[in-house]
Computed example of a mutant assay.
Amino acid sequence: MEPHIQEQKTDYRSLGVSGLGGWLILIQIGLFLTIILLAVQLMQNTLPALTSEMWDVFVSKDSEYYHVLWGPLIIFEAIYNVVFLLFTIYIVVTFYRKKAILPRLMIVYYSVSLVLYTVDYILVLQIPMMRELEDGSGIQEIVKSVITCAIWIPYFIKSERVHNTFVR
């Protein structure tokens, strides 16, 4: 007869650092700033561009600012901003509930941000007027996103605090 082996559950929080402190404070600040910046972007740029008057300026063939990609670009940015705002709010809720899925959500969040910044930049460069106005800020955003991914994705994979905090 085999002896009955009782399975033990490990309380990861007792093994080392845990909680929403440490470097996770920077993540919290970043998430709240992202929510604010996306809301401002929507209110100041995206929603005004969707009004019939502004829409006609960019997509009417009679307009001096017309380009075939303006419509798709404006719609892409509107959808991106709304979806990312909602996704960021979901991440904040998940963060404070200390859900085990949070590290994966953050990896997706940073990766998708990089891809979408890059796609947006490529689309913007296809419009001659926007290409002329490009001052390097688009490339700077992509570089910042690459650096962010290089720092925070490994952090969410390897951090003891992350592993011990997001276990539910």
Rank of each mutant, 00 (worst) to 15 (best):
W23R: 15
A39V: 15
T88A: 05
L50T: 08
T10Q: 09
M130A: 14
T118Q: 08
S159Q: 00
S52V: 11
Y109F: 15
E141W: 11
K61D: 04
L85M: 04
V162C: 07
D62I: 03
I74V: 11
Q140S: 12
M129L: 13
E160Y: 07
D135E: 05
K61P: 02
I147D: 00
I29G: 09
I35S: 05
K158M: 10
E77A: 06
Y121D: 03
Y66Q: 03
A49T: 02
I29Y: 09
D62L: 07
F58N: 00
S159A: 05
Y66R: 02
T118H: 06
I139K: 09
S18R: 01
Q6D: 13
P72V: 00
W23L: 15
P3I: 13
A39P: 09
I101T: 08
Y80G: 00
S14H: 06
T118P: 10
E134T: 03
T10D: 03
G22D: 04
A78E: 00
F166R: 04
L20K: 08
Y66P: 04
Y66S: 02
V115W: 02
G30S: 12
R97W: 03
N45C: 06
Q8H: 15
I74F: 02
I74Y: 00
Y80R: 12
V115L: 15
W152H: 04
V40C: 05
Y65N: 12
T94A: 15
Y109Q: 04
I36S: 10
Q44Y: 10
T118W: 07
G19P: 11
S145V: 11
V57S: 05
P72A: 01
Y109P: 07
L105Q: 09
Y121T: 08
E53I: 13
W23I: 08
L37I: 12
L24S: 07
W70F: 13
G30V: 12
L102F: 09
K98I: 07
D135I: 06
L24T: 09
V115M: 11
Y12P: 04
V83M: 08
Y96Q: 04
I75H: 00
R97C: 07
M130P: 02
I127M: 01
T118M: 09
I74K: 00
Y110I: 07
L50K: 10
N81C: 14
L85V: 05
E134N: 12
L26Y: 08
V82Q: 01
